[in-house]
């Protein structure tokens, strides 16, 4: 009865059959890399505080991938499964509907990792991407970011009545974060008004944290960012647990 691995493998297949997920998590970040890599290259420049443009942009793209899976793919599937009564159907089997939730978290983590791998590999091969920080600290930052976006995604997926509402809510949350958190365009080039807005977006703290560590700063240099991500995880994770509706 190796049902959980079977469930997870099936859910991953289904996940990859969603062209939107595949494009935004796997292809889009690489395309962004090509676009800005072609425009600016990766030579150290003064505008980027002496770093190469690609080196500065890639940590933001990593956050973007986490946001795609956590804020778009995850809530959409959960809301759809509830709407179509799939969660309820699985309640009437020997497996737990929580298993579906868990398999969704695993699947979205896997896709995130694959997306990051593609991004880093192309960055390395084409633009000689460099990493200046501590790998373990970067990993810790990544886990904090992933937990925060998944908590928001679980919350959206847990309370929206159907797939369509979930898409609308995800887009409303996702797109501002995509453009205004520094994930795609550095906040340094933004006017003060946008920077003020960005402070209200959870992903901003993730981007700042991961970018900082990537470029050589230490994890403990970012107590505010870590605090914000933990707060978001606890807040939305707690709300999701309390308010999640199976049907």
């Amino acid at each position: 009865m190796n049902v959980f691995p079977k469930l997870t493998i099936l859910e991953w297949k289904l996940h990859l059959r969603n062209p939107l997920t595949v494009f935004f998590a796997l292809a889009f970040p690489v395309l962004m890399l090509f676009l800005f890599g072609t425009m600016y290259g990766n030579e150290p420049n003064e505008f980027m505080s002496g770093f190469g443009s690609v080196d500065v942009l890639v940590p933001g793209y990593i956050c973007m991938i986490a946001a795609v899976t956590g804020l778009m793919a995850l809530p959409l599937v959960l809301a759809e499964y509830r709407e179509q009564k799939i969660l309820k159907r699985f309640m009437a089997t020997p497996i737990q509907p929580q298993d579906i939730l868990l398999s969704q978290l695993i699947v979205n983590t896997l896709t995130t990792l694959v997306g990051i791998f593609l991004l880093l590999a192309s960055g390395r091969v084409i633009y000689n991407l460099k990493f200046f920080g501590n790998v373990l600290e970067a990993l810790a930052a990544f886990i904090l970011i992933l937990m925060a976006v998944f908590a928001i995604g679980l919350f959206i997926g847990g309370v929206t009545p159907n797939g369509r509402t979930a898409i609308v809510v995800s887009y409303v949350v996702y797109f501002p974060m995509l453009f205004l958190s520094g994930a795609t365009m550095p906040l340094e080039i933004m006017p003060q008004s946008i920077i003020n807005i960005s402070k209200a977006l959870p992903l901003t703290y993730g981007v700042t944290l991961l970018k900082g560590i990537w470029l050589g700063e230490r994890l403990l240099d970012f107590p505010l960012e870590i605090g914000a991500l933990v707060l978001v995880t606890v807040l939305f994770g707690g709300l999701a647990i309390r308010l999640f509706r199976w049907e």
Partner: peptide, 23 residues
């Protein structure tokens, strides 16, 4: 169950295999 649709991107045998592994 009434009005349940299964994962529409799944193939018939994939769901059958999943359910077979549950029992």
């Amino acid at each position: 169950l009434q009005e349940t649709v299964y994962q529409d991107k799944a193939k018939v045998f994939e769901l059958c295999q999943l359910f077979s592994s549950m029992y």
